[in-house]
Structures are given as structure tokens and as C-alpha cells.
Design a protein around this nucleic acid. Structure first.
Lengths: 120, 120
DNA sequence: GAAAGTGGTTTCCTATTGGATACTAACTGT
DNA sequence: ACAGTTAGTATCCAATAGGAAACCACTTTC
């Protein structure tokens, strides 16, 4: 008998699978969660602020990731008419809807570390 | 004046940042969420079952990702004494603690798609 | 006039990721 | 005998991710 029955073939699972793919494609990479988390915590931050806040990131990656996030309407970029010119990055209303995901992930990570500690 | 004040330098933020890094290092890659989600939905599944359920994955990636997940105690692998030999993969008790994260991510992805649809 | 701050871009390089294909090895059903 | 099942491994290749360093243009401060 040939097997081809699938759990994931049910419409509800198909939707879930696609939803996960969607979310991952927006949030993939090493830095996006860090950038979003920092912007959620920090309200309005300049490029150099972010560079200082996010330990280990370089200007190339920061610039690229910010562009990605801006394209997907998770982060807004505003050039201020100051001298020298400054840029304000902030989380959008829409980006804030990710708070729950980020919190869950962070809390899970914290529990993970506790569990590791107990083991040894 | 040299700037070096940091939001993320506060202990609570340091812990959060590390927690996010920890979680991401276990869950990185294109397939881990799909595998975990399928195993949470499907209870016990064989290698070929997973290969069929998860659309697009190849045996090499599935094998590698399962090994990663097993090493981190999120998935268990049991060789059954059948002929031909079969292997049962299932989510561990510990892996189940990721349900909330996966659900949040999936729900966010679903809302994201709805929002896109409304826009156009 | 030199240093340091603003916000990036460009180039070069390596490491990792991931996909396609073929293969093994044992067993079952026709 | 032969196709199909089980669970992977091996090999090769292309694409992407990501880091280091240099550089740019502009302005303010020492």
C-alpha cells in the first residue's frame, strides 16, 4: 500500500505551515530579533545608537537589516532636519505586534538556560 | 562628549539579548520550526513520514536537522525492533515547551497575511 | 587644521546553508 | 527476480549570510 496520507495536508495545517514560512522570511537572520527588541525597548534611536546597543553588529549588517525591516513596515526611518543630519529609527505600530513573539522567544531562552544550569 | 550609555547594558536586557541568541541558535535554519510543529501535531512519526509531511525538505536536511534537535533534547529518536527496522521520532516533554513560541509565530504569520490581503 | 561625530556604502573574503542526485543495505510483497 | 519499502549517508555544487576594513560627505568642536 502506497502511503501518501498527510497530517499537514489538512487546510488548517497548510495555513499554519505557510504562516511559519512567512514569519520566518521576515525575521530570518542573526540580527532582526535583536534590532526589533532594542527598538521596542528604546523607542526612538539613531543609527549609531543601534550600533552601540546591539553588541557585535557591524554597520553593514545593521544598514541592510534595517532596510529589510523598513520594507516590511516593521520599522520606520525618519531623517531629521538637524545639523549634523540625524536619522530616527523606531518600531511601527505594526512592528509592535511582534512583541508577544519576541517575549515568548526570550522567555523560552531564559528557561532554557536555567534548565542547562540545573543539569550540570 | 563621548556616548556610550546603553539601554541594553542593563542586566535585565543583557539576559534578554542572550536568551534570544540562545533560542535562535537552537531554532535557526529553514526547517526546525516545521519539524517541531509537525511532531507536535503528529505525536509519533517515522523518517519517511516526516519527509512526506514537510513539503520541500530533502532527506539530507531532514536527517541533519533531526540530529540537531535530538542533541538539544527537543526531539527523541527511538529505533524500533521491527522488520524492516523503523524509527520513531517524537517531541520530548521539553520540546513541548516550545508550543507557545510556535503558536505565537504561526498566529502572527496568519495575521500578517491577512494584513497584506487587506492592503491590496 | 585635525579629530570626532553624524549615517551610511563598497569591497573583499570566508563560512555556512541548503538543494539535487546517487547510493547503501536489509527486508517484503508479487 | 524485481520493484518498493525502511532510514538514512555521501558527494558535489550554488547561493546566501555575514564579518573586517576602508571609505565618503558633511558638520561641529578643540
Amino acid at each position: 500500500m502506497k502511503k501518501n496520507a498527510e497530517i499537514n495536508a489538512t487546510p488548517v495545517c497548510q495555513v499554519r505551515m505557510q504562516a511559519i514560512s512567512d514569519a520566518m522570511s521576515l525575521l530570518s537572520g542573526k540580527w532582526k530579533f535583536h534590532i526589533l527588541g532594542t527598538l521596542i525597548a528604546g523607542n526612538k534611536l539613531g543609527f549609531m545608537d543601534l550600533l552601540r546597543e546591539i553588541d557585535g553588529i557591524g554597520s553593514k549588517m545593521l544598514s541592510k537589516e534595517l532596510q529589510d525591516l523598513e520594507m516590511n513596515n516593521l520599522v520606520s526611518r525618519t531623517v531629521m532636519d538637524t545639523k549634523p543630519i540625524t536619522v530616527e529609527y523606531s518600531i511601527t505600530k505594526y512592528g509592535k505586534t511582534l512583541s508577544a513573539v519576541i517575549d515568548e522567544l526570550a522567555n523560552w531562552g531564559i528557561e532554557y538556560r536555567k534548565a542547562l544550569y540545573k543539569k550540570n
